[in-house]
Design a protein around this nucleic acid. Sequence first.
DNA 1: TTGTATGCGTTATCAA
DNA 2: TTGATAACGCATACAA
Lengths: 344, 344
Amino acid sequence: MTHPDPPPAPTLRDVAEAAGVHAATASRALNPKTRQQISAETARRVMRAAQALGYQPNSVARSLKTSRTGTVGLVIPDLTNPLFPPIVRGVESVLESGGYHVWIVNTDNDAEREHAKIESLRARQVEGLIIATARLEHPLLRRLHEQGVRMVLINRQVEHLSLPAVTGDDATGVAAAVRHLAGLGHTRIAHLSGPLSTSTGRVRAQAFRHAVRDLGLPGDLVVECAHWSESDGAAALRALLTRDAAFTAVVAGNDLIALGCYDVFAERGLSCPGDVSVIGFNDMPFLDKLRPPLTTVAVPHHELGAEAARMLLDCLGDPGRPARTLLLPVSLVVRGSTAPPGAG
Amino acid sequence: MTHPDPPPAPTLRDVAEAAGVHAATASRALNPKTRQQISAETARRVMRAAQALGYQPNSVARSLKTSRTGTVGLVIPDLTNPLFPPIVRGVESVLESGGYHVWIVNTDNDAEREHAKIESLRARQVEGLIIATARLEHPLLRRLHEQGVRMVLINRQVEHLSLPAVTGDDATGVAAAVRHLAGLGHTRIAHLSGPLSTSTGRVRAQAFRHAVRDLGLPGDLVVECAHWSESDGAAALRALLTRDAAFTAVVAGNDLIALGCYDVFAERGLSCPGDVSVIGFNDMPFLDKLRPPLTTVAVPHHELGAEAARMLLDCLGDPGRPARTLLLPVSLVVRGSTAPPGAG
DNA sequence: TTGTATGCGTTATCAA
DNA sequence: TTGATAACGCATACAA
């Protein structure tokens, strides 16, 4: 109704023509890096013309010419998991100041979708990848690595593949959680682990086993969740209850799994922390306002993203640099979901 | 260490050469839309060669040639606001099946950042924009519209500018909230509005005034929050308390503002809903697990995103189509943060 | 300091 | 059905 036809965007030639110079000159005038090569007077004229026409450089053309897109792909399972937005922002904050832009894709933990999304990113010529969906067995990532694709892992590792990675110090966090519960007097502590197909799930489960063993407590109260989700957490806890195991505390693989426990408590009329204490992992937002406020292990997600981005920048700058794994410190945040056993 | 130099990605010419045909032929063979133009035998040979070489079409080059990028920009304030991830996913789900990919940018409610981000999206030749950051006064959007940029608004409108938009039915939602409180016996109800520079803030505030007036209740208990945030909600409630206003219930502009109220309750030793009832807006995740569970107005965010995406697709398909505003139904979700006055 | 020529990888228009 | 050629918009090596 209002705009019958969008006017064609002005090109560099239009600007050059308007300024009475050749396109090459206009190009140089507009690029701060080459502006010194031409006279101040001409530069001014070109810039004026560009301004007047509302010229916008076409970065598609520029990318084709320079074979640099200034973009990076960020592969996550699902943006609606509160864990990821802070990571995304952390990645962006660093990459942005490095002159890069970030493409976010969601895989929904589906290998096929992941494949398609990553192919699409590569077709779009991203210069690097930050991946938060790695599994221990991950042929796709292996192949990408072989093809020389620059990438950095967040929160996860791939078995027998040396890739730069940044994660929270999961083992220390889980140990702190277990010690906290033991300190409260708990002796039968369960663990609802994340998927053991992920390094995160496995590392936390292993750390749990070590921690309880070190304290002389039973280490057999472990149930694996198929996914890092509320519903899988609930299912795992139900399984544990059905088994009629005599536990008084739960270390959940992450906060969502812990929230799944809350659902089961409501369902079965159990009180937390009266009947069962629970500890989550991650410290996602608003946990302090829950009923009860969830004790958890705080992971610096923004920093996780930021450090991964820095690693990728390093990687892009110096392809030969060896892969390092960065472990960021975590901290136990004690809230209302943990108390001595039988306190209710 | 591992890969001294990434091998150059094979191009269409490489595939053509390997298949013993011209690049143009290879192009046609690889494109499903033009494949019929060539012999089945040749097509097979080309596709085999592409497969063997691991050929990936370069979409930058394709975009330059076709002047179609298949990308759309999504402009939001901040991904870490739980309101937006579901919107993003809704947008993506529709756009994806329309063959488009989505670029997400965060503006942090900063006009300058917004400008820069949108410029960057345009430079990257996005074919349309979905904008969730509109203010009533918004010169930038006005200019973009004049330049013929296709766009759809989410959750917001621009004054005197007829743009396609999809929002929740805020007026009805606020009215339901007020009626719910009045039905419980509240007569002095306050409203902590969102910024009145946004249509959303203004519409909800107006709806509040109408609703209380219709019930014969006082309409002067309104405080504006500078931003849709927890801290601004807390500040607004403190202001109201300082004023020593005799209110027993609060309709918050959104859930975050309501959570800010929770903070103040904790701070001042007030009980909710005993001393004050609170209603939020949006029904963001995990509200049911708060202490107390927050009564709120549920807005279908995924649908909001999906509908906006559909509108944009329509818009891209038929530029001349008139701008429509779509109002999606909302529903009051009663939880534990509302009770008769003096119930505590 | 500026202009000329060329090519990035692809698709579209011709002609054969 | 296939091939030759040109062009998308830009940046750069080279020439002037």
